[in-house]
């Protein structure tokens, strides 16, 4: 099958996902900064209390998932722009994806076992 894999509309979904995940992370950052600058990390206990709240765990999870999706799109774009040999690029894509899935699990486990 002859299929042209570049051109208009290919990647629109990723473009949109990049914006949505970016906004999620930006909002999370503002909320976290508010906590941090109002004593939310004044001590190790305060920091644990901040991060273990139900709402905080909920949005932290959203942040982790957004970050990993966002990083996937961004890093994949970098490989696509600079790495020409298909085999090398495919390997890098795979390693990136595996790293991000692992990081998502690791970070989620840290937040949720609190």
């Amino acid at each position: 099958m002859n299929r042209i894999v570049v051109g208009a509309h290919y990647g629109l979904k990723d473009w949109l996902a990049q914006r949505i995940t970016g906004v999620v992370m930006a909002v999370y950052t503002v909320i976290l900064m508010f906590y941090l600058f109002t004593g939310g990390a004044a001590s190790a206990e305060a920091w644990r209390a901040t991060m273990s709240g139900g709402f905080m765990r909920f949005i932290s999870f959203l942040f982790i998932i957004s970050l990993c999706y966002h990083a996937w799109v961004g890093i994949r774009d970098i490989w696509m722009d600079y790495v020409k040999p298909t085999s090398v690029r495919l390997t890098l894509h795979t390693l990136t994806l595996l790293t991000l899935v692992g990081v998502a699990g690791w970070a989620t486990q840290i937040i949720w076992r609190l």
Partner: peptide
Amino acid sequence: HRMSGAGLFLMLPLLVYVLQVSLDP
């Protein structure tokens, strides 16, 4: 923007590690 994104990605394991030990009592 691209370089900072790449740097953050490469250092993700360090950042998650710091998060982990910062929350470990």
